[in-house]
């Protein structure tokens, strides 16, 4: 054996292959957090130690129980009206979950419809629809949300409408791209040759093939919608104050940050945790279902 070969063999032997993780933590943890969110939202009345709107003037601004001067009855402390922060965080899950599910359902349906039509039809219709999509994508939804809050008053419906009005555009762009690609595919040409109607091709051949990317984007969208909803609630353009929502809770603590940081802190952590989980799960799904989407 030559000297150079021996040298090469030694280097290869010295290289330690990295252990591949057997447990997929980047899947399990996000799923656990999101399941917790769903369960918390459903079972909020049983999980929360207090009703979320119950005030107690004697227990105002109590620090979390694990801190100096904390009241053991209030694990995460109380706010300016003496409401239990833990209970409000638990109930806040309901708003985040319901808004995000509803918005995703609406935007995904509308966006898919527009995307398939644009991508499959092509030509002028495609050009016009995509121009509208581009503008919608670059329009700050927050302003429309403020405008709607003025006109309709802040409410659950206003938030959903505001976030849906332009939110479909991301889906439309994605689905349009996929449909455009699929239109050239052999099985679609085949269907066209055998005389399938456009309607049938769109529903039977194109739609099933965009489901994977739709799942990926929808998962990634959970975080986006929750963030947007919390921002609107923070600004007072979201869910009216009597319903506890995480964004509004952060806002409640804004003017008391020098005396009671916990009012703002914990709801923000809840938002961050859920959004992080949604994003991680989305990334994981993308790698599994549709690695081509990595660019998004």
């Amino acid at each position: 054996m030559s000297i150079e070969r021996k040298k090469a063999d030694d280097i290869v032997k010295g290289f330690k292959k990295r252990r591949t993780a057997t447990l997929q933590w980047n899947f399990l943890i996000p799923v656990a957090v999101l399941s917790l969110l769903v369960l918390t939202a459903i079972f909020a009345p049983w999980l929360a130690p207090y009703p979320p709107t119950q005030t107690s003037l004697t227990e105002r601004l109590a620090p979390p129980s694990f801190m100096e001067g904390g009241n053991p009855a209030y694990f995460l402390g109380t706010d300016t009206l003496g409401r239990d922060i833990l209970s409000r965080v638990i109930f806040g899950a309901r708003v985040s979950l319901s808004v995000s599910l509803l918005v995703i359902l609406i935007t995904a349906s509308v966006g898919t419809l527009i995307g398939i039509i644009a991508g499959y039809t092509g030509g002028r219709i495609d050009a016009i629809l995509m121009r509208i999509t581009d503008i919608s994508l670059s329009f700050p939804a927050i302003l429309i949300a403020l405008l709607l809050a003025v006109i309709l008053g802040p409410s659950f419906g206003t938030v959903v409408l505001a976030l849906s009005l332009f939110g479909w555009a991301g889906y439309a762009r994605l689905v349009r791209g996929e449909s455009l690609r699929l239109r050239q595919a052999d099985f679609v040409s085949q269907a066209r040759i055998t005389g399938s109607s456009s309607m049938r091709i769109m529903t039977r051949h194109i739609f099933p093939n965009v489901i994977n990317p739709l799942i990926v984007i929808s998962t990634l969208q959970i975080g986006m919608v929750i963030l947007a909803e919390s921002a609107l609630s923070y600004l007072g353009a979201g869910i009216p104050p009597t319903t506890p929502s995480w964004g509004a809770m952060v806002s409640d603590g804004r003017n008391f940050i020098d005396v009671a940081w916990w009012i703002s802190f914990f709801p923000g952590v809840a938002i961050g945790l859920v959004v992080l989980s949604g994003n991680f799960l989305g990334d994981w799904l993308r790698d599994k279902l549709d690695p081509r989407l990595r660019q998004l």
Binding site: K7, A8, K17, R18
Partner: peptide
């Protein structure tokens, strides 16, 4: 060129693309 050895060290394996 004398007895050139080139390898790729990836996460999963070592590939000796040029082997002497």
């Amino acid at each position: 060129v004398e007895d050139l050895h080139t390898a790729f060290f990836t996460r999963k394996a070592v590939i000796r693309a040029v082997d002497g």
